[in-house]
Amino acid sequence: MTRIHTHTSIDSSQDFWFALKEEAKAVSQREPLLSSYLHACVLSHHNLETSLSFILSNKISDDVMPAIAVSEMFDEAYLLNPSMIDAAMLDAMAIVQRDPAVSTYLPVLIHFKGFQALQVHRLAHYLWQKGRKELALFMQSRNSEVFSVDIHPAAVIGKGVMFDHATGIVIGETAVVEDNVSILQEVTLGGTGNESGDRHPKVRQGVMIGSGAKILGNIEIGRGSRIGAGSVVLNDVPQCTTVVGVPAKVVGITDCDRPCDSMQQNVLANSPPG
């Protein structure tokens, strides 16, 4: 059954930010050793934009690219493209709703590398769209080095997306991941060779992709479908169906329009279509 998080009144980034600061204050009081860390990451900031910019720039920076330079890129992107902040908020809310291991927003922002890697990709994608491709590729490289998540800056990713565990996720240049998708570790959205042009998967809304799945080629993963762990998918997947295997085959229908929410990993939980 889908979990419903307790922050039912949150419908804006301001509400989200208030809830986040309240969580940070409570943790800081309970665990004084984290007080200065939480102050630097959350409590010293006035909005979600500057907090995220600080957290992510300190994760991505290195000896060549200092945190202040990365932070300036995030600040510019959030100012000129505020939809990035809305997407980040919805990503965090999706994690709290879908992951039984987390019930508050604070650990998502400061600890969850899947969330952080996705926000770094959003910056890389912003830079790519602005024609700053070399800088975008630098961000992709750092994302891969720091979080073990390799997403080409041109890849299009929607909002309310959850990278669960995230290690080893690879997403190619012409891939599209629509809103409200859950992707587990070691998933590849790749090509089938060295062909050029539009060559990567298109994942529609509500999809759940199990750990280790490889989806290859310019194929469509239909809305509300579910890909079983370890599957190799080489052909289109109809909407609201479950596929599993090597090569993947239809084994049933999904129990809801958004398997991304239920996160049901047992692909045998539904009967095959009649």
Rank of each mutant, 00 (worst) to 15 (best):
G172D: 04
V149P: 07
L135A: 14
F163S: 06
L38R: 04
G158I: 04
L90G: 01
Q239V: 05
L80H: 14
H165S: 14
T192Y: 14
T188Q: 06
T192R: 15
V27I: 15
I151W: 05
C256K: 06
I227F: 04
V187K: 01
N194S: 13
R199P: 02
Q264K: 04
S53T: 14
D91G: 09
V170C: 12
T192H: 12
Q205L: 04
K249V: 09
S148P: 12
L20Q: 02
L43E: 00
D91W: 00
V244I: 12
V181A: 07
T167C: 11
A166D: 11
K113W: 13
A69F: 15
N47M: 08
V203I: 13
L48P: 00
P153G: 10
G224A: 04
W17C: 04
P201Y: 01
H111Q: 15
I219H: 01
K249R: 09
I221E: 01
L106H: 03
S71N: 13
S44N: 12
G212Q: 04
Q140V: 15
I95F: 02
I68G: 12
N218W: 00
M162D: 05
P82S: 10
A166M: 13
A175N: 07
L48R: 02
V177F: 08
H121Y: 05
N47T: 07
A26N: 10
L268Q: 12
A26Q: 09
D164Y: 07
T174N: 07
Q129T: 15
T2L: 13
Q129L: 15
G252K: 01
A101D: 12
D62P: 13
I55C: 08
L268G: 08
